[in-house]
Simulated scan of single mutants.
Amino acid sequence: MSNLLDETPTPAQQGFFFPAEWHPHAATWLTWPHTEASWSRERLELMMPAYLDFIKAIADSEPVCINAHNELVMQQARMRLLMAGANMDRIKLLPFPSNDSWCRDHGPAFLINPAKKERMIVNWGYNAWGGKYPPYDKDNLIPTAIAHYRHLDYVTPGIIMEGGSVEFNGAGTLLTSRACLLNKNRNPNLTQAQIEQYLRDYYGVQQILWVEDGIVGDDTDGHIDDTVRFVNEDTVLAAIEHNPADANYAPLQEIHHELRQMTLLNGKPLNIIELPMPDPVVSDGQRLPASYANFLITNKSVIVPTFRCAKDQPALDIIEGCFPGRQIIGIDSTEIVWGLGSFHCLSQQEPGV
């Protein structure tokens, strides 16, 4: 479909907005891991069982669309999925080329206009978290490939923006972090005020709330989807570390302090529910960005990363209390997080309208 021109009214002016993740999905999008960009060949084999469990869990709830690079990768993915017992009637493999697997960040941002029963895509720029992991040229083309596949108009703001850096309540509020969005490795020529205007214009929000930073080991410079997640219009799950000796103690305490100062558009303070951090996950001396907050909400479930520790079940219980009517599915993400992300990072929801 067409790339809307600069003189076209912004998506917000046209009545489009990015809905909350619990809005009904038409599908969830993934990008199949096929290179050694995030996992070595050996690590890829170790993470694959959990990745396949993740796909099967999504497919139990809604269709899954997978960017699978080329025909060979599509064949390999189909064989793995069939052997794992996945419901292939709910899974669509597409030969859209990619460099890496983090669809939350390189995938499209789907906007909806419920009044007109219309959707569109925002084709944000993507530079692999500040140019850290070239090449990323194929990843940067995925939103337009999906727009053409879905026959949707798309708009290209011309700035860098990653899906994991923003969190929405569906009622006009966006949460993000200064460490990421104001980092000079993304949009060095833009001020905070200019970035906020882009967020209003292209995500259709009215309020931007800022926290300072993210968790240790997060190579994205502080993505919000590891620290604070909306579970309804007024409530957030916020990661907390109670051990003062842990490196995440200070940044997460600061985030909670900032959250307590916030007021939503309806005048209410945020309802903050504490979500424990897992025990540290360390590999080859490196602290990995393990967080229960990196869950994915689907139409029927919430898929939560677990990390083989005693805090797994309490975290699942807390999340279950926030999502009545949805099944809470814990999947071991210890091998997946070696790639420096988990289930939310790997996926991008496509809302229905």
Rank of each mutant, 00 (worst) to 15 (best):
M48Q: 12
K268W: 10
D201H: 03
P9H: 04
T220G: 03
W338A: 11
D105M: 00
T173G: 10
T191Q: 07
L81A: 09
V73G: 03
E212Y: 13
A315H: 01
T227N: 03
P351C: 09
P11H: 00
L346I: 11
A109K: 04
R308Y: 08
I272F: 00
I273G: 08
C180S: 14
N189I: 10
G217F: 04
S101C: 12
D219C: 03
G285D: 00
L340Y: 15
G130E: 01
D246W: 00
V337G: 08
K300S: 14
Y51C: 02
P135G: 05
L93A: 12
I336Q: 07
L288A: 03
A147M: 09
I215P: 07
H151T: 14
S38A: 15
E335R: 10
N299S: 07
A27H: 13
S101V: 08
K116R: 13
A50C: 05
R90S: 13
E320K: 14
L259W: 04
P314K: 05
I329F: 06
P24M: 09
L346N: 07
A171S: 15
Y154K: 08
C180Y: 03
M161I: 12
E241V: 06
Q286T: 13
G163I: 04
E254I: 10
M48H: 04
P157W: 00
